[in-house]
Design a protein around this nucleic acid. Sequence first.
DNA 1: GCCGTTTTGAGGTACGCAACTCATTTTGAG
DNA 2: CTCAAAATGAGTTGCGTACCTCAAAACGGC
Lengths: 362, 362
Amino acid sequence: MAEDASTTALTLKDIAREAGVSLATVDRVLHNRPGVRPDTVRRVKEAIARNAFQPHVAAAELARGRARRFAFVMPSGPNPFMQQIEAYLGEMSGWLSARRLSVEIVATDVFDPSVLAASLESLSGDYDGVAVVALDHPSVRAAINDLVEAGTKVVTLVSDVPSSRRHHYVGIDNIAAGRTAGALVGRLIGQRSGKVAIVAGSQALRDHAERIFGFNQVMASEFPDLGVLPVLEGRDEDNRSEQLLARLFGRHADIVGLYNVGAGTQGVGKALTDKALTDKALTDKVSSDAGREKRVVFVGHDVTALTRRLLLQGVMDAAISQNPGHEARAAVRVLLALARGEPILREQEKIRIDIVMRDNLP
Amino acid sequence: MAEDASTTALTLKDIAREAGVSLATVDRVLHNRPGVRPDTVRRVKEAIARNAFQPHVAAAELARGRARRFAFVMPSGPNPFMQQIEAYLGEMSGWLSARRLSVEIVATDVFDPSVLAASLESLSGDYDGVAVVALDHPSVRAAINDLVEAGTKVVTLVSDVPSSRRHHYVGIDNIAAGRTAGALVGRLIGQRSGKVAIVAGSQALRDHAERIFGFNQVMASEFPDLGVLPVLEGRDEDNRSEQLLARLFGRHADIVGLYNVGAGTQGVGKALTDKALTDKALTDKVSSDAGREKRVVFVGHDVTALTRRLLLQGVMDAAISQNPGHEARAAVRVLLALARGEPILREQEKIRIDIVMRDNLP
DNA sequence: GCCGTTTTGAGGTACGCAACTCATTTTGAG
DNA sequence: CTCAAAATGAGTTGCGTACCTCAAAACGGC
């Protein structure tokens, strides 16, 4: 209400006048170009701060001329979650080209540290920004630091390398995700007692290890009566996960909960369905709702076509999800903001841990 | 990989050449200006489509000159959720001014249809876009349609007027939100049996009615053993909600679940805490975990300072939440995209129904 | 006070488009 | 065929910044 609509936004010229210098000097200060006395730098910066001056983004972008190039270094394998991220990047193409931005996908074996590091090194100089699904390994860390050193903006995606000098991490807190999974499994089991199984890809993967850690934390502190069985390593493969689980169900008749940490969901689902059928055949004549009583609470990760179906069928109870579309867009926006020297809207770019059940399927 | 990095992005000049017309004609077509033969329009549009031409956003914005003005019509009362939206708009000020956008808050009694309608009418002509927390009423609908008619872009925020000609709705599907609440209450109750209470502000409010509808849907179809008690109308006031609930607890000893549809959370929490104390005092000598057995599953809406505390204390089990920051930013982005004639990233602007429990508190 | 270096000023060009003017060509009705 | 109206071409200006050049001024060491 108190705004004066007649005032036109300030321009660099106004700042130059305010600071008592020429446009060229303001320009030098703004872009950290050499050849300005410290005292003059201070005066200019003060004038900018005093007036809360913001360069006109559109004008800056236009004057800049050349387009910005970003690279997304992604796993080469057929990971559905990563494919979703790529698909969402594709959906942005109109948005990107209207801003003269280019995003290129670089497929790499991100699980081999030396290959990944080499891939990263090879990008140096060609790109304004790089988003990478990173393995946490010394050589990868070094490659990231080299990129940063060369002036490239770097964000880690989905999986972080906290000890590197990357500018930003776009992804979730995996310990909290594991805790959330634990709380859900425990709460959904309710008053029943029994054992809880965990299937993971590998405990050597940082994100999986963190999720298991968080899960166990909650189980130990809040559901001490539920025994947690040793982690099965399914290597994110369907067949292997299914077989390991089937064997486990054979040994333990009192499993009431299951946490699938990574992929291999198809196999896990199959093992569960088989078990349900067996249990039903065995107890059908005794009690009508024995099937419900013996039902295993199943919590996993990510909303894919498969987990969506399992949720709708009632085989799966909840999926802990990080929104792949949000991650794709946040990574692009963060790289752009970094390249432009704009502040990052932390609240906007933060990836939340979504709990997805049948009724709030996106 | 197949991209040719050497190709420079197309400009209007290229399109003009392609279509065999002059720049002026392309400009006329692009801005729906009169004086172009239908056949020529077609040729130009084809050339644009054929080359997937995107006008350079920055150039367009710069050339445009005048800043865009948006108005946010918000409730004047002390609603914490609305205050959060306003706060997040405030956080965007840097982002906004760098784009030469202005956002003004217009406080109004949105619960009085005629006052709201008058407020909307008064904005006509002054703004490029309007976001409004709208009551669904014929006169409001008419006011919205008038704005749209006058060329103003209109989005409804949090609460929709689906029968109006508003360009977009930024908010959640309240029926689905109610369903989610129902599924949570039912699942978290587990094997226990008993009754479920509902506290709402008023069943005359569209969003509350929709939530209750969704909640009852799920309870009836999936948890038929849980009896749902008649809705208490607390008018979103703490005292009233507390008293109504306390009386209800007195009449029904077997309440195992509670759904708070709107505000008044403080009162609901107090009623629950009092009940827990009473129950504990009565049964302490009999059984040590009777308190847990009698515990009421409590699900409500929105993450505020209060619900956050209740979740951490374990009084509240889950909050169904719509992210106010996301809503604020989405409304601005949608208005901007509409004003620029850009496509809207539906996936990005869709507001999701968040399930917030203690371990994934944002 | 001299000279070389550093700092600063002044000015220009370009970016792609919006918005406008005015002249010219094309069109269709009579 | 004529003439007014409609359609189109050609051109200009300006938006606010980046980036560049060249000259002028201020500076510091001796």
